[in-house]
Computed example of a mutant assay.
Amino acid sequence: MTPLILAANDTGAGTGGWVVLAVLAAAGYLIHCVIWPYRPCRKCGGAGRFRSPSGRAWRYCNRCNGKGAQLRAGRRIWTHIKGINRDR
């Protein structure tokens, strides 16, 4: 058989590549969360505050408590995993 026909008949060879790609993406996100644990707040856009309706005063964001940043979900998972290892 020619190589093109063999490649067309092979149906199960591509599934392992997707698994490896998913594992690499998850590891990359975990490393990203370890280096940069905070993300900008979605509500205030990372500013931590809003202008009042009159435009003269500021009020703090309720979601991030005026910090402008929130902890990433991956960092929460990382901290939980580290806490499990410490309990032993």
Rank of each mutant, 00 (worst) to 15 (best):
M1I: 01
P3A: 04
P3T: 06
L4R: 06
I5G: 06
L6P: 00
L6D: 12
L6S: 09
L6Q: 12
L6Y: 06
A7I: 03
A8W: 04
A8K: 09
N9V: 06
N9H: 05
D10T: 08
D10I: 02
T11R: 13
T11D: 11
A13R: 07
T15D: 08
T15I: 07
T15L: 09
G16T: 03
G17K: 05
W18H: 12
V19L: 15
V23G: 07
L24E: 12
L24Q: 13
L24T: 04
L24M: 13
A25G: 12
A27V: 13
A27S: 10
A27M: 10
L30S: 11
L30D: 07
L30A: 15
I31K: 08
C33M: 02
C33V: 08
V34S: 10
V34L: 11
V34R: 14
V34A: 14
P37D: 02
Y38Q: 13
R39D: 15
P40S: 11
C41A: 01
R42M: 12
R42T: 12
K43V: 15
K43Q: 15
C44T: 01
G46Y: 04
A47D: 14
G48E: 07
R49C: 04
S52W: 00
S52Y: 00
P53Q: 04
S54M: 09
G55C: 07
G55Q: 06
A57Q: 12
W58R: 03
W58N: 07
Y60T: 12
Y60P: 03
N62T: 04
N65G: 09
Q70M: 10
Q70Y: 01
Q70W: 01
R72N: 07
R72G: 10
A73C: 09
A73W: 15
G74H: 01
G74M: 02
G74T: 02
G74N: 02
G74I: 01
R76M: 10
R76P: 00
I77G: 05
T79N: 14
T79F: 05
H80W: 15
I81R: 05
G83I: 00
I84Q: 11
R86W: 07
R86T: 08
R86Q: 14
D87P: 00
R88T: 10
R88E: 14
